[in-house]
Design a protein around this nucleic acid. Structure first.
Lengths: 163, 163
DNA sequence: CGCAATCTTGACAAAAAAATAATGTTTTGA
DNA sequence: TCAAAACATTATTTTTTTGTCAAGATTGCG
């Protein structure tokens, strides 16, 4: 279970824009340099993010990219949804092995886990905005752990309810 | 953020063994058929799981695979750790773009999110054993949601504590 | 013993993902 | 108006991930 290159870099590029002041913008070469990727690559990512409505692009000299909405209104859950290749919607449509559809029509012990995991992840990501990721790493880390904190406790306290 | 083919199929093959009675075992072709994958593929997966100590293999006629430990003692967190290609340990060593190391030495707003997400996932998976995935889908689903349930509540109740 | 069933293991091929390249369009300003 | 700077879009190449194959090794049985 891991994050894809597109998700990681896309998020990082967006985060660069989130650090800008009002009326500032960044060109592709600038974004590329700040994230250590090629500007062709940055171009493709920004194209995606533009299509999805997260950023505004202006062409021509003096052009560049800026956020289309306030950083505090952009939730990671939305961004990740755009950046992951294709919709996770149909888990049972991927991983069908050599067959056309999954062999487990009806009962499958894994599906609820996969689906549940996605719910957990989405839930966590839907509580974080871009704005909250701007700042020092320590600060961001502390913020994130507040989101996790209570869960750890509550989950542990009902651990032994299995057959 | 998604589960890889290796993780998915590996887990499913293990789950097949978990449904067996004492002293039963399955051969590669049998596992392959039940999961709708090729037996060559099943072979590689089982090889991994064998190396990691989750399954026992016996060769020769009447050979096959069975779990090396009780299904109730095998946690998904361990299994996933083995099945994901390489250790997630060093997130900063992957996704370095065109450079040798990540440009964000020192402060990076994304790292805590990635790391935190992994903690959340690991935590959820470390509460689920193979044994709990045997049964009807509805039952498994209900079990899994017990794990999620309390978290949802606790997280929502402290949502507005950001700058 | 010797054959057949079975796992083991490394090399190889196919598919998917990621990155780059190439070509086109828009804007600004001299 | 024209050239330069910048984004837009599609095609191609490269890399990574998956899956297959083939040659071995081990075991049981007639």
């Amino acid at each position: 279970m891991k994050i894809s290159a597109q998700e990681e870099y896309g998020l990082r590029c967006l985060l660069q824009l989130a650090t800008l002041k009002e009326d500032e913008s960044l060109t592709l070469p600038q974004i590329a340099e700040r994230e250590g990727i090629s500007s062709a690559n940055a171009g493709k990512l920004m194209w995606l993010l533009n299509k999805a409505g997260f950023v505004q692009a202006t062409r021509g000299t003096k052009g560049g990219y800026s956020l289309a909405r306030e950083a505090g209104e952009i939730y990671l859950s939305e961004v990740i949804k755009i950046l992951e290749e294709d919709e996770i919607a149909g888990h049972c449509e991927s991983y069908t092995g050599v067959l056309d559809s999954c062999v487990h029509n009806g009962g499958c012990g894994i599906r609820p886990v996969i689906v549940g995991l996605h719910e957990i992840i989405q839930n966590a990501l839907s509580q974080i905005t871009l704005a909250q990721l701007v700042g020092t790493e320590a600060k961001v880390d502390e913020r994130f752990h507040r989101i996790q904190g209570l869960r750890q406790l509550s989950v542990n306290s009902q651990q032994s309810s299995n057959r």
